[in-house]
Design a binder for these strands. Structure first.
Lengths: 124, 124
DNA sequence: TCGAATCGATTACAGTTGTAGTCGGAGAAT
DNA sequence: ATTCTCCGACTACAACTGTAATCGATTCGA
């Protein structure tokens, strides 16, 4: 289940780190930040606290620090956000989004073949 | 061109109205709000002002009121937001998003046929 | 002409977000 | 035992959002 509170952009950066590897301490998380988001440790702690409040992560005590782990799965989050986009911009319909993406991305012949393969698989 | 300022959820509601029909006065916009977002006129005016500030809409004077029109096209906005989602959640790749959506949506046989038709069209 | 209705502009105000500083307590080092 | 270090908690603070009230000017109706 996805709690209804939205995960912000900065918070998502933290989630990605925890999805890749958990549990981690706040310091560990800070050490794994991408270069273009080299936040201070206090900032990371604030974001972790907020994620705790949103019940997106949990922590358990390890000596005198916390080990954080995701509570929301990446799959759930991705599904949720994808649906949100489809609802907001494509009237909840999948096909218009697909058409838009296909056109936008200028699919290569290889992409098309790959998609056809995926579709065949689904048929069965 | 899309100015980099993000359009918020409430603001998007206004944009949708203007995309459907423009130019409109603030009062016209308010009258066309969906039922689940029956905001007061002042609220609509605030949102229009913010959209002006973000250069997402323009207005021109008509007697003593303004007529508002979108400056950003819906196509551009949709493309922008779709790309944002793909970048944030699918490493900028189209295929993973397609796979995710296809699985999620549980495509019907008719959908699949439709997609195949679209793909054929693209091939040529 | 004088009050009523209407406009846009300004102000309000709480909640979220991005980004961080500070503080009190608990452990670690000496 | 005392100091230093590190942790989580709390505080900060400006920008953005959602939602609106109010105010001064103008115009319309009586």
């Amino acid at each position: 289940m996805m709690s209804s509170e939205r995960i912000s952009d900065a918070e998502l950066t933290i989630m990605e780190i925890l999805w890749e590897r958990a549990p981690l301490t706040a310091t560990d998380v800070a050490a794994r930040l991408p270069d273009d988001r080299a936040w201070s440790l206090p900032t990371v702690k604030t974001l972790l606290s907020r994620l705790l409040g949103k019940e997106a992560v949990e922590h358990h005590v390890d000596g005198r620090r916390f080990l954080y782990s995701p509570l929301i799965g990446r799959e759930d989050y991705v599904a949720h956000e994808s649906k949100r986009l489809v609802d907001r911009l494509f009237g909840g319909k999948f096909m218009p989004l697909f058409a838009h993406l296909a056109e936008q991305e200028n699919l290569s012949a290889a992409d098309i073949t790959e998609i056809e393969r995926l579709l065949q698989e689904m048929k069965s």
